[in-house]
Each structure stands twice: as C-alpha cells, then as structure tokens.
C-alpha cells in the first residue's frame, strides 16, 4: 500500500514539473497582418449555431449570417477581390484560446468589447450594437431582468459569454446554467431546465423568429457593442481592419448588410444596432 502511494505521488510530482515547463514555453508572436497579406486569406473564427449572425445551412454545409458577410466584406476590402475568407466554427468558450494559439487570425462572432477582454485581445471599433435581453416562453410571468432575481430561478446562458457575468451582476440570486452553445442553451430552455435564456437581443430575436412560442421580453438591460477581435499585439491587423470597416460603412455595404439580416425582424431597432 505504501509502495502504491509513493508511486502515485512520484508520478504526480513529475507530471506537474513537466507541465509547468511546457506551459512556460510560449511561442514567439507572428505578424498576422503580414502573413494574411501574403496568403491573401484571413481565417475567421465565427459562430455556427447563431441565427442571423453565423448559422450552418444544412442544405450545403456553409455558414451564413451577418458576421460572415461582414468578415467577407472586410477581407475583400483589405486584400482585394480575389482574397479568401476562411471560416472556422467557434463557440464563446473556444474563440479566445484559438486566437491566442494562432489557429485563427481574427474573430467575427458576436463578441462584445469588454474591459476584461481588452486586456488580452485587441478589438476594432464596434460594428454592431447589441444589448443583453431575456427570452421566455410566451405567457411566462417573467417580464424583465428584475423578475429573474429570485432564489431558485434557473437561467440558461452560454459558457464564456458576457451574459454569464451580467446575470451575476443584475440578478445575483438567480442560478446560471452554462451550456456549450446557443442550440444547447435553447434546447435546455425548451426542456424546462430553466425559466429563461439570456444573451444578446440580436441572437434572441433570431431564435424567437424561428420559434413563435417564445418571445424576447424586458428590452436590453446592457450595452453590448460587438467588435472584431485579434490577438493582443496584432495592432497592424486591427488598424487595417478598422480602415476596412470605415470603408464598407462609407460605400453603403454595411447598411445593406444590416438591412439584409435584420430588416424583417419584428421588434428590432435598426438604428440601435448600427454603429
């Protein structure tokens, strides 16, 4: 028995030593802008489960949405008409590590600009103005964020989103159940695992459009300006993305895209969304 314990302990210590060593070995930073320019290609981290922003089309397997169109427009503005935008499916949980480890060049995935995230990533100017809201079943007694602030209330949110922190702040008594993506969170709401689902209004309107038994209530209780993100220190990439963003706003592409995706959504304020 003592031998057993000694062996286990020895293994654990050795392993920790190995891991600590490997996790210290950071790779040197590459210049994403120069690499992308050479390849004429930007690898974007996008959503695959979010209606209106980034959703896989089952007919052809391609991802479609506002974020996708913005990313394509920016890529073409930056590196010319024949430049390629490549898309990698991400979730709120995976996009930061993937940016950090160079698996993707930039993120266009309903990502709110926050002070915490700014410490580790570089953001462009906002390209979409969302606000956090609440989705409930029609006829629910929940009318707004304050109704959620009760003990025993369970609210669905997605791991790694600002919604998780905001609920802790605005409705501290509610318990948050964190799921991996929006499809899972909404499935859980529909299965009655919680009384409401919370995230940005644009995403919730997308779900409500397809599921008429559900509605967005209480309006937006936070400001969630979406930005395109790159890894910290990729300022050259960010500056060029900002310039491209200005250009697509100036030539009308941007407004056209906002109308294309959000023009027909009842209850959605286009003025609020445009940045």
């Amino acid at each position: 028995m003592a031998k057993l314990l000694k062996k286990t302990l020895g293994l654990l210590v050795l392993m920790m030593a190995v891991f600590t060593l490997t996790s210290c070995g950071q790779s040197s930073q590459t210049n994403v802008y120069q690499n992308s320019k050479e390849a004429k290609k930007i690898v974007w981290g996008v959503k695959s489960d979010t209606k209106l922003f980034g959703l896989v089309n089952i007919k052809n397997g391609k991802t479609e949405g506002f974020d996708i169109d913005i990313a394509k427009a920016i890529t073409k503005k930056m590196f010319g008409k024949d430049a390629k935008a490549e898309f990698v499916a991400t979730t709120a949980k995976t996009k930061v590590p993937l940016l950090k480890n160079n698996s993707i060049d930039a993120v266009a995935a309903t990502m709110t600009i926050t002070p915490e995230r700014k410490k580790i990533l570089d953001f462009t100017k906002p390209y979409f103005g969302a606000g956090q809201s609440i989705l409930v079943k029609k006829g629910s007694s929940i009318k707004g964020i304050n109704d959620l602030n009760k003990k025993g209330t369970q609210v669905m949110a997605v791991k790694g989103t600002t919604a998780v922190d905001n609920i802790h702040k605005y409705a501290p008594k509610a318990k948050v159940l964190e799921l991996d993506d929006y499809a899972q969170a909404f499935s859980a709401l529909k299965s009655g695992q919680g009384i409401a689902m919370t995230t940005d209004n644009g995403i919730l309107f997308g779900i409500a459009k397809e599921n008429p038994n559900y509605q967005v209530v209480g309006g937006a209780f936070t400001n969630e300006p979406y930005g395109l993100a790159v890894d910290k220190g990729q300022t050259e990439m960010r500056d060029h993305m900002n310039k491209a963003l200005d250009e697509i706003k100036a030539d009308g592409t941007y407004t056209k895209l906002v109308k294309k995706w959000f023009g027909s959504i009842p209850g959605f304020d286009l003025k609020e969304a445009e940045e």
Partner: peptide
C-alpha cells in the same frame, strides 16, 4: 490537442 498544441507551433484543426 486543440488549445495547447498550437502554442508550440502546431496549428490544429478540429
């Protein structure tokens, strides 16, 4: 493999 390997220079896809 998805998050750590790329840090030592191996870009991985899903």
């Amino acid at each position: 493999t998805y998050f750590a390997l790329p840090q030592i220079g191996l870009r991985t896809s899903p």
